[in-house]
Amino acid sequence: MPDAADPAGLPTWVRPLFFAAIVRPALLIGFGLGMRHRERLPQTGPAIVVANHNSHLDTLLLLSLFRLSTLGRVRPAAAADYFGKAGVVRWVTQHLIGAILIERHHEGGRRADPLAPLSAALERGEIVLLFPEGTRGQPEVREAFKTGLAHLARRHAGVPVIPVALRGLGHALPKGEWIPVPLNLYAAVGEAVQADPRNKPAFTAAVEAAIDKLDAELPTSVWD
């Protein structure tokens, strides 16, 4: 089951080592990182971290911002229809990345509560990473956020929702491309969103506004 605390049964040092030895050096040399307000990232759960989505590498970039000692408690949400198929991708997604697989689409009309595995993780005191756009979309363009985030926040009142703006990967490795181009990546972390998740549209709009505001802090590089 993907919602167990340690689904693979891998030793707890494997993921920090994977990030310290492979992911971080590759991101640093291959792209380069510019970070703002990294100290605002939560180091203890439960917490929900939300970011805009441009590229598959977003998850690795976001995870690499956390301290190695925290990494074991950080669980990104990943689309089961894309990453959960089979084989190596599924194994890496679940065991090395520590992702929670989410069913995005209805299967034959009825489906189980798609947010249940995320709820379970929050109840275990873990930090959940969400990309509320649900898809990578156009490079460096933020799509409207889905309401799943507000549902989750309403169920877990009092759990902080931390916005993060990511930039650069939409150019370095956009959707549909396989060869990355070395270009700097940027991330800005915000303060917890202060809005009532019971009002779903207002809450979603507040998170969107927080990420847009953080995005404005990052260096601009308008491509055409």
Binding site: P174, P182, L183, N184, P219, V222, W223, D224
Partner: peptide, 19 residues
């Protein structure tokens, strides 16, 4: 060069040329 190309806006069509 990486810093320069990150700083100076490029054309999306030239992404592969950057390689």
């Amino acid at each position: 060069l990486k810093e320069y190309l990150s700083l100076v806006p490029q054309r999306s069509a030239d992404r592969k040329v950057l390689l």
